[in-house]
Every structure is written in C-alpha cells, then in structure tokens.
Nucleic acid binder design. Structure first.
Length: 356
DNA sequence: AAGTCGGGGCG
DNA sequence: CGCCCAGACTT
C-alpha cells in the first residue's frame, strides 16, 4: 500500500500525541494566541507558561493591554528578555484599538503589518485562531524540515531560509492547518529534538533523508558563532537614609530597553568621584557586593555592584521619568532588569535580617 | 547579509 | 562553558 503523505502523517501524529492542553489552547481567542506567540519567540514553553498566566490575569482583554501603561507591561515581561517584544505588543494593541475598532484583524497582510509580527507569527496566529491555511517557520519547523529533506546550510542564510519556506508552504495542510502547524511544532519539540532526536517514535522516519543518511544529529547546520566579548562595569547601589535605592530608566533602544537599572560607572573611572560628579550625590561610605556575570546573546556583562551610602535631601528635584528612589521595603510595579532585581533582592534580604 | 536583542535550560 | 529556544527588526 502507498505511504501516507507527509502532511497526513503529521496530522495523525498530532491527533494521537500532540499538545492540546497548553494554557493558550483552551479557546481560540486571537488575542490570547497572539500574546502566547510573542512570548514564545526565542523562549521555551515551560519558561513562558507562568509569565503568560500572570500577563493574562492582569491584561485579560486586548483593550486592557492597549490602555495600560508601558511601565506595567514591561513589569509583567521582566525576566522574559527581548523587551522589544513587549513594547511592540503594547504598540500593536493600541494600533488594533485605534485602527481596527478593537477587533484583532483577520487578513494576513493586516496581521503582519503589526509591530512584532512577522510572517511566521502571523501564520501561527491565523492558523491557530481561525484555521487559516498559512505556513509557519519557527525553530521547530525548520529543524524537522531541514532534517527530513536534508537541507544543507545554516537557516539564517537567505537561500536556505527561502528553501525552507517553500517546503513549509507546500506541505501545510489546506484542510486543517491549525492541527498541522501545531503538530509540526510539537514534533520538533518532542520528537525531532535538537540534541537527541527520538527517531524510533517519529511518524516521518520512513521518509526522513537525514535519518537514512545517519545525519539527523548534524542537521540543521548550526549557526557559526564567535567568542563573546566581556564588558565590565560598576553598578552603583546608592542607598539613602531611608533604605531607598536610586534607579535609572534605560533608553528604549538597546539592552534592557525601557527597563529600570542601576547607574553604570565605567571601569576606568573612580566610583566615588563618578558618584559625586555624574550623579551629584556625595558618597559617605562604600562597600563591595558580590560580583555577577550576565550573558547576553552577543556579550558577557561583568557586574561589580558597589553599595554607596548617600544623604538624600528631601527638597531635591528629580525627573521621575528618568530617575527614581526605589524603596526596598515597598517594591512597586516597574520593570527591573533581571540581574538588578536579584541584586536588590539580596540587599533587601540582608537588611531585613539585620533589623529582625 | 549581518548585527541586535535576554534569559533560562541543558548537556 | 557552549548551544539553542513558537523571530523580528534595524542597518
């Protein structure tokens, strides 16, 4: 008998083994699926789930998100990374509110025109929410296709990417794209895994070219990587007489965009002098805190936190959009850079320990 | 086409 | 420690 098609095998496998109980699969509301798809960009399912639940509890409807302050959106995103996703999500919600009468658009071109939504995410949202037949191409689908069809080359190369899109487009189910796309993602996550593919339980094994050639572990071709440079800075923890800490808001573009962080003193400067001249606070006492390393996609960040006691006059004027005194005992809803939150948390624990 | 953008999980 | 993960955007 003739072998079932690629597409029908994926569909059958999804019905039998795929994931159907994820929090954003309960209904097919476009807004919920949209939020989940943005969170899932470059982020694994198990990491996303608690963030998704807190986010949806605070912003249950699209208009709740559109009408919220960006600061609070970033607060609920803090720790997930790629904060441009949160800013784009917020801006896109406002575009839907103002340009689409608050209804999430149903035309592919309209969806892809929203900030933060590219071809793959637009296809995912419209296929999952409305069963529209659009292909997707996330990391899982790339891996399944690259292996099954033995596609050579790093998928970041335009020619390789074009070939993978052609395959995804040709294979996507016309009748049940939602189940097919979810099936491909689940196959990539559960069977056709990066490190140790479970070919024995794969519905596509009989036709998989990489498996036939014993190359499933070396495809897809990995990204050529360079050694990450190391950047070091002092992080100044200015602490006033009321146990408040001075925070600065980071520029929207760049690392930790829009989040609140500690003043960053260059390594070639003297922290006491820098504190006096750049921050205009007279340092009274200084203490080293444990050094930390944070790794970004493109460099290591060595943080040398210094706790500096200062006197904070009550009549001093400050621009609260750029700098705030953050009370350790009374944390609010600002988005803090994750390593900064950990540093402040340690200080707060040690200070509460001293007082009782 | 290449670089930017976070944090976590895993071997 | 290196590598990757439900990518999109800028230059």
């Amino acid at each position: 008998m003739r072998m079932q098609s690629f597409t029908s095998r994926v569909l059958a496998w999804y019905v039998a083994h795929g994931r159907k109980e994820l929090p954003w699969q309960r209904d097919r509301e476009p807004y919920a699926i949209w939020v989940s798809e943005i969170m899932l960009q470059q982020t694994q399912v198990t990491t996303v789930i608690p963030y998704y639940q807190r986010f949806m509890q605070r912003f249950p409807k699209l208009l709740d998100l559109a009408n919220a302050d960006l600061d609070e959106v970033l607060h609920h995103w803090s720790g997930l990374g790629y904060y441009a996703r949160a800013r784009n999500l917020h801006a896109a919600a406002q575009q839907v509110r103002d340009g689409f009468d608050g209804q999430f658009p149903e035309r592919f071109e309209d969806v892809q025109s929203l900030p933060g939504i590219g071809r793959s995410t637009a296809g995912a949202i419209l296929s999952f929410a409305m069963n529209q037949p659009h292909p997707i191409l996330d990391g899982n689908v790339k891996r399944v296709l690259a292996r099954h069809f033995a596609v050579e080359g790093w998928p970041g190369q335009s020619a390789v990417l074009k070939r993978l899109w052609e395959l995804s487009d040709a294979l996507t189910s016309e009748t049940n794209p939602a189940a097919y796309n979810q099936g491909m993602m689940d196959l990539g996550a559960m069977i056709c895994r990066r490190g140790l593919p479970n070919c024995a339980e794969c519905p596509l094994q009989s036709s998989c070219q990489a498996h036939a050639e014993g190359r499933e572990k070396v495809l897809p071709t990995p990204k050529p990587r360079k050694k990450l440079p190391i950047k070091s800075s002092y992080l100044l923890v200015l602490r006033d007489q009321h146990d408040a800490v001075l925070l600065e808001r980071r520029p929207l573009m760049g690392v930790w965009g829009g989040l609140w962080s500690l003043p960053e003193c260059p390594m070639d400067a003297d922290p006491m002098t820098w504190c006096r001249e750049k921050l205009a606070y007279e340092p009274l006492d200084m203490m080293r805190l444990p050094q930390r390393r944070h790794t970004f996609s493109h460099y290591h960040f060595e943080m040398l936190p210094l706790e500096i006691a200062v006197n904070n006059p009550s009549n001093r004027v400050m621009d609260e959009g750029v700098r705030v005194w953050y009370k350790l005992s009374d944390p609010d809803t600002r988005g803090l850079a994750a390593p900064v939150a950990r540093i402040l948390n340690e200080i707060e624990i040690s200070s509460t320990g001293e007082n009782g």
